[in-house]
Design a binder for these strands. Structure first.
Lengths: 195, 195
DNA sequence: TGCAATCTACCTACTAGTAGGCAGGCAAAA
DNA sequence: TTTTGCCTGCCTACTAGTAGGTAGATTGCA
């Protein structure tokens, strides 16, 4: 993969913004063409089919997400701080509209209509994210930072659903601040009372 | 509006299923035409534009939702039972795939790409639903059935986000039971400890 | 010079729609 | 009672544009 300033990088960036706005069926090669200023056929040179473009895009997104989550774990030794930082990351992205919705959550909505090579990657992302949440919650519980009412796996699913649901609500109400209003208490609830 | 067995009713039913699967841009008049067995031009006779079709569909959906919520309030005097019944309703719909996703939540994902006449209705639905949740939670708290950590408005937003997020997770993981796994503890948490 | 990346030109299939015609049913008029 | 007119709902035929793509040519750069 060339640098982000390369044409294929620009294609992926543009496609990503378009998917965030309207999902898989909400964008076309013509949209990318108009945004970047190259012809559709040139896009096909880089990504022969739409399914491949989006599959590559999801792979890239997942690599960036994994790098970001790893970075959180290096920056913060405390699982609670890691989780807080994760939520703050999304708060910022939604507020400044740099990434107002998780790509894979967006694609998950139209899951059964996606080409399988895309759907499988979206599903894998959900599994990865659930695992991350689970590990952070389990570690935090072990350290006495979190008090979990349920198994870490279940708490992880609940928190992840809240995060995605909060993104959706922020969008439905055109109120970026609503994301924080929703997820902060969900996070706070997880903290052990001793804090 | 004619009976549900009329052509326009069939058109709306079919469009609804298609929207649930792939959103606004995931279906076309040709899809409906093939499903019902009438020509596209005939669909235009009933609904001249796609935007109008979806706007009418959202109106109908909202009327049905309102009727359903009113029915819950007549059937169950207890706000806790009303809320439980609401969640059970969605559990059943998701399990039997009769309505595996809220139409307005589906459309909310692509909010900025929707024709304004559709977007305004989707937004209105979110407001209505938030109000219903708020009133049920407030009444339940007043009757000592719920113990709220936050204002009813905020708890309502949190619960609504969980519901929509749980729908998304159930779809992403291809696991209808996950909806219940996620929302049941969120509901249980709201119950006052004295129960 | 060779290769990557862009282009032109084109394809098939599809999209949301328009315009006028036909058929059947029902009510009113002869 | 029969005929006529109107209306609804369907149709054919068509429009303009768009979608994802193919194939070969051209351009730019190392």
């Amino acid at each position: 993969m060339k640098s982000m300033t390369s044409t294929s990088g620009k294609i992926l960036d543009t496609a990503q913004s378009l998917i965030v706005a309207g999902g898989y069926n909400g964008f076309s090669y013509a949209d990318i063409s108009a945004a970047i200023g190259i012809r559709k056929a040139s896009i096909h040179h880089h990504f022969p089919t739409k399914a491949e473009l989006v599959a590559v895009l999801v792979d890239r997104y997942r690599q960036q997400a994994e790098a970001g989550l790893n970075s959180l774990q290096e920056q913060f030794s405390s699982p609670a701080e890691q989780l807080r930082a994760y939520l703050n990351f999304w708060q910022m992205c939604i507020r400044d509209a740099s990434l107002p919705f998780c790509i894979c959550a967006m694609l998950a909505g139209e899951m059964q209509m996606l080409p399988e090579e895309v759907a499988s990657r979206v599903r894998a992302h959900f599994h990865s994210l659930a695992r991350w949440f689970t590990s952070v919650l389990a570690a935090g519980a072990e350290q006495g930072l979190f008090r979990l009412d349920k198994q870490p796996e279940e708490e992880a699913q609940m928190l992840m659903a809240s995060v995605h649901g909060a993104m959706l609500s922020a969008r439905a109400f055109s109120d970026p601040g609503l994301f924080t209003t929703i997820v902060t208490p969900q996070f706070t609830r997880l903290l052990a009372p001793a804090r």
